[in-house]
Write a protein that binds this DNA or RNA. Structure first.
Lengths: 343, 343
DNA sequence: TTGTAGGCGTTATCAG
DNA sequence: CTGATAACGCCTACAA
């Protein structure tokens, strides 16, 4: 492998001039620089990463802690990973992928060894050990999602509470007064997954504030769970005309199919909105109105905040993205006089 | 951050002894080593990665080139990524994730800069630029999948040809004589994706050898494509009794649903086998017999071969995993007298 | 505008 | 069994 010394020798300059010419950190005469660049290219010179880390102040590397739980949606997960990795590369950083249960240990290792300049933490739960680690060790890190205690941390997330309110506002504006929420499986709430709770709590509170009848169901994934959820909502809310889903891809699709199987037409009999999910229903049989979880945007934003933290000065803080409503025709207007969803 | 010098000072030994004690690369008196280990732990010492790369011969890092094409199945992709990353960590290596279109450029960069000791290359197509790069630059690399020219390369893959034969053998043994293949979209074959071709070609050849009637369809993803594929197979093979799918999750599920919609019962009217796919149908409405593409196993095997290449001596070569047949009841026996699939 | 020289933290070689 | 010491390749004052 060619080293900076080789380049300097061939170009007939000193190594510091090569370093300066290639890094742009100081002025180098135009012709000198061009000569150096040409030599570097012809020699296939790439600065040695180890030497750079050792001498420089940056490793130009971030670590991504992306554990995969049993109830994690793989496609959504992948979208976040992609978003983070792409944004990082654009900012000149490579991404180290940490997937094991050793999530916290791995973070400790890569940051203590100065392998990574900063950490992006995905799939955060209420009492996440990684939050303590970051706080205790004062690591540069950005969380995608929020633990219960965000003190001293930098977090980015969709504003799930506002998303819930947005769904309700739209449905109420369309004349709906009895609205169900199909949420995550019970175990997800129990694990303390923060966004699920925020969505549910805001949904219930805002429905009350709007004077709307609402009920929440928390189905297990799969067909049976979805069918039971539909039946249960119909039972609890005889005048049910709309449903908001904050659920996995599988549950969401199964629910739509359950409607079909039960003879419930969407949106004529039942309006449906999917919120806080990152899968695409635009080509489904029944394209759904959604309030998407923008994985790319969140990943990119997390990287931007991390880089700011690494390179400049940026204090901690929570940044919540404003939700966007995407209409696709799965919500119908309800005249005030409209009756039950079922004939 | 504590350095090796700190540890040496506190433990009252020289830095070379610390290095030796912690790396185990030479004998150190038991009590000395224990003292050093205790000091290192109490100081939270982690060897500086940059210094280690620079002085040592290994970066303890592999790069994973995992570009995401439009026709890539995200969950399958993720499973490979997980398998590779987990296996690498177990072998003491961290994984650098490369996702951009800069796939080849990124590989060049990370290996020329000695950031990565070796490369794992996913999603390989027939004339993959990354194969040329590896060959030309003599990089240590393992391909998951095979380009057309595997000369000088190390590749691991499922034996798709044998998988096709296995499916046919099972179906023929069950009495089927008219068998359709639902393959990938046309564009995938045209892109030269090697496994798709190997499966199709072996399927056609083996069917001929067995004296079985067969036809191949290459549907576009989605519901309409699947329905058209079923109709077309029924048209081409009036006595169709079995179908082998080597298709995406979406197409596979859509095809099963198309059967339901067309009143074709599985397996009474039509036997189905899914081959070379890594998604799970065991909890579907109609669990399918499969010849799985074992992403974890392939990823782990790729890492094992790469580590062998990095640490020891291991020549190039292609390693094809033997396919396994997993029965789940979607194949029914056909008495010789049985007629067409449709009444 | 360019060159010189010291140091980053570790490993590895070679004396002791 | 242990301790000096020379690389490793690059960055960055500082000097010219």
């Amino acid at each position: 492998m060619a080293t900076i010394t080789d380049v300097a020798r061939v170009a007939g300059v000193s190594i510091s001039t090569v370093s300066a010419a290639l890094s742009g950190k100081r002025h180098v005469a135009l012709d000198t620089r061009q000569r150096i660049e040409a030599v570097a290219r012809s020699l296939g010179y790439h600065p040695n990463a180890g030497a750079r880390m050792l001498a420089g102040t940056r490793a130009q590397m971030i670590a991504l802690s992306a554990p995969l739980h049993a109830d994690t949606s793989t496609p959504a997960h992948m979208r976040f990973v992609l978003g983070v990795t792409t944004a990082a590369r654009t900012a000149g950083y490579d991404t180290l992928l940490l997937v094991q249960d050793e999530a916290a240990e791995g973070l400790e290792r890569v940051s203590a060894s100065a392998l990574a300049d900063g950490l992006v933490v995905m799939d955060v739960d209420a009492a996440d050990r990684r939050a303590d680690l970051v706080r205790r060790q004062g690591r540069r890190a950005v969380f995608i999602g929020m633990p219960d205690d965000t003190d001293g941390l930098t977090c980015v997330d969709l504003d799930f509470a506002q998303a819930a309110e947005l769904c309700l506002d739209r449905l109420v504006a369309a004349g709906h007064r009895c609205i169900g929420l199909v949420g995550q499986p019970q175990v997800t709430y129990e694990r303390g997954v923060n966004y699920a709770r925020r969505f549910r709590d805001a949904f219930v509170a805002h429905a009350a504030a709007l004077g709307v009848l609402c009920e929440v169901v928390t189905p297990e994934p799969g067909r049976a769970g979805a069918e039971a959820a539909l039946r249960r909502l119909q039972l609890l809310l005889p005048d049910l005309t709309a449903v908001v889903l904050n659920a996995s891809e599988r549950t969401t699709r199964a629910f739509v199919r359950a409607c079909g199987a039960a003879g419930v037409r969407v949106p004529e009999d039942l309006s449906i909105v999917s919120a806080g999910a990152s899968f695409d229903t635009s080509e489904d049989e029944v394209p759904l109105d959604t309030v998407p979880l923008p994985a790319d945007t969140l990943g990119a934003r997390a990287v931007a905040l991390l880089v700011a933290q690494i390179e400049g000065e940026a204090g901690p803080g929570v940044e919540l993205l404003a939700p966007q409503y995407v209409a696709r025709g799965s919500v119908a207007a309800r005249t005030p006089a409209a009756g039950a969803a079922q004939d």
